[in-house]
Design a protein around this nucleic acid. Structure first.
Lengths: 160, 160
DNA sequence: GGTGTACTACTCGGATATCTACTGTCCGAGTGACTAGGG
DNA sequence: CCCTAGTCACTCGGACAGTAGATATCCGAGTAGTACACC
C-alpha cells in the first residue's frame, strides 16, 4: 500500500499558497520550480485540487492557482481525497461468496473483515479531517518562523 | 492508494485456519480452492505470513499451513504488516529541502506534513491492532452461526 | 513376521512472465495584457 | 490625451508514452508416507 507522491506535493503547494495569500495567483510552473518538481505533473495534481474545489484556477497571463477558501477550512482529508480519489484503500471483493464457501446460503450479513477494515480506515480519515492547512502552517511557523517569509520572498523576487 | 488484494485473502485464510484448529495443517491449494483463488499466488501470501511468524508451514505430504499462535494473539495489524511490508503509506521525500526552498537553512526540524500524516496513520494502525482474528471470528459466529461448521465440513469432506 | 531401504507423491519456496496504474511528458484551447493606431 | 482593435505571450487542461510495483504462473528442493525386498 502506497500513497501517491502527488499528495505530498499538493499539501506543500497548499501551504505555500496559504502563505502567499488569496489575492495573487501562482502558476504551476513556479510552484514546481520552488521544489524542482516536474511542472507538468504538478499541474496535473493541481487540476485535481481544482476539480475538488480546493483551489481555483485562472488561465492566461497573470493566471495560476490560488486557494478557493481560507486555509482553516481546508483539511488534509480534503487534499488526500482530491488526489487519491474517493475509493477506500481496502476493497472487499466478497470472495466469501465464491466457490465452495458461498454455495448455499448467500447471506446478506455484512462481511466482518470489511467492517473491521473500514473501522480502521474511518479512524484514519477522522484524524486527517481534524487537521487543516492552517494548523500545519501554524506548526511550521512555530518551529521555524522564517519559513513563511522565505517563501514570500522567493515567490516575490525570482522572475523565472 | 490501494491495499494489496492479498490482504483480503490472507485474513480470510487466517479465519479458516482458526476455525479448523491448530492440530491439522491445510495446504495452500485447498485454502485457495475454497474461494476459487489462484493457488500459487495465495501460496505466496501465506509465505509472507510464515515469514512474519503468523503461520507455520510444514512441507511434504500431510503438510500445509496452520496458525502459529492462538487467534486471540493475531491482530489485523499483524496480517496487514506481513503482506504490505513495514513501510508507511505516506512517504516523505523531503522536497522542502530541494530547490530554492531549502537553500540556506537545512533545518533539522521535523517535516510538519510528515508528522500530521504519520499521526493519522498511527490512528489507523492502532485500530487495526485492537482487532484480533478471534474477534472477527466471534462476530461472524454471532451473525451467521453456521459458517464455522460449514467451513469445517467442507475442509473435512472434499478430497481434492 | 519384523525391519530396513528405496521409491513416489505431495507440499512449500523462490525464480520468472504479464498487467495494471502511477509517473512523467507533450501539445492545443482559451484568456488577459500589451501595443499601436485613430479620434 | 483617450479609446478601440489587433496581436502576442502566458496559463491551464486534457491526451499521449514510460516505468515501477502488483498480479499471476511455473518449476525445483525437500519431506513424509508407502511398498517392497531381505533377514
Amino acid at each position: 500500500m502506497r500513497m501517491n507522491e502527488g499528495v505530498e506535493w499538493a499539501v506543500h503547494s497548499c501551504l505555500n499558497l496559504a502563505w502567499l495569500g488569496e489575492d495573487r495567483a501562482v502558476p504551476a510552473a513556479k510552484l514546481a520550480a520552488f521544489y524542482e518538481l516536474p511542472a507538468a505533473y504538478l499541474n496535473k495534481q493541481l487540476q485535481a485540487l481544482a476539480r475538488a474545489g480546493i483551489v481555483t484556477s485562472t488561465p492566461g497571463p497573470r493566471g495560476g492557482f490560488r486557494l478557493a477558501r481560507p486555509p482553516e477550512e481546508i483539511t488534509l482529508m480534503d487534499v488526500v481525497a482530491a488526489i487519491e480519489g474517493p475509493d477506500e484503500a481496502f476493497r472487499c471483493t466478497e470472495i466469501r461468496h465464491r466457490g465452495g464457501s458461498g454455495s448455499g446460503s448467500r447471506s446478506e450479513t455484512p462481511c466482518a473483515i470489511h467492517t473491521s477494515m473500514r473501522k480502521a480506515e474511518l479512524a484514519w480519515r477522522r484524524e486527517l479531517a481534524s487537521q487543516s492547512i492552517a494548523d500545519i502552517a501554524a506548526t511550521v511557523d512555530d518551529h521555524s518562523p522564517a519559513a513563511a517569509e522565505r517563501v514570500r520572498r522567493w515567490f516575490g523576487d525570482t522572475r523565472t
